[in-house]
């Protein structure tokens, strides 16, 4: 069972997306901000995919991606941004930081699972 790491400061997002992905057959890990997420990754968590929000307290999504990419074994792990931000400038910044893709909230479950299938072949 592949593990997806959800990072969002919204409890409801963590719960709802967590349930959707669990029903789709994934194992879920959660963190409520970038700093907590980075601590877990440094602690040895090796998710198959990271889905992170952009605007979060302590450390935002872009900073998290930059820091995560510097960790050993995290260079090619797919990281999706899931945010309400839709402007091109932010997307460019995310892409530059190392994001694999950009999803604008709200994202439909079938679309989310479709994207996951694309970045995680065989899932």
């Amino acid at each position: 069972m592949k593990t997806i790491f959800l990072v969002d400061d919204s409890t409801t997002i963590l719960m709802s997306l967590g349930d959707i992905l669990t029903k789709a057959g994934f194992s879920i890990e959660k963190a409520s901000d970038g700093e907590a997420a980075l601590t877990k990754l440094k602690g040895g968590l090796k998710p198959a995919l990271i889905i992170t929000d952009l605007n979060m307290p302590k450390m935002n999504g872009i900073e998290l991606i930059r820091s995560a990419r510097a960790l050993p074994g995290m260079r090619f792990t797919p990281i999706l941004m899931l945010t309400t931000e839709s402007q091109q400038a932010m997307r460019d910044e995310g892409k530059k930081a190392g994001a694999t893709g950009w999803l604008v909230k709200p994202v439909a479950p079938d679309q989310l699972l479709g994207v996951i299938k694309q970045v995680l072949p065989g899932s």
Partner: peptide, 13 residues
């Protein structure tokens, strides 16, 4: 249920 859970995203928005 999955659709309902998806709509919960609007609360965050």
């Amino acid at each position: 249920i999955v659709g309902l859970l998806s709509n919960i995203q609007y609360q965050d928005i």
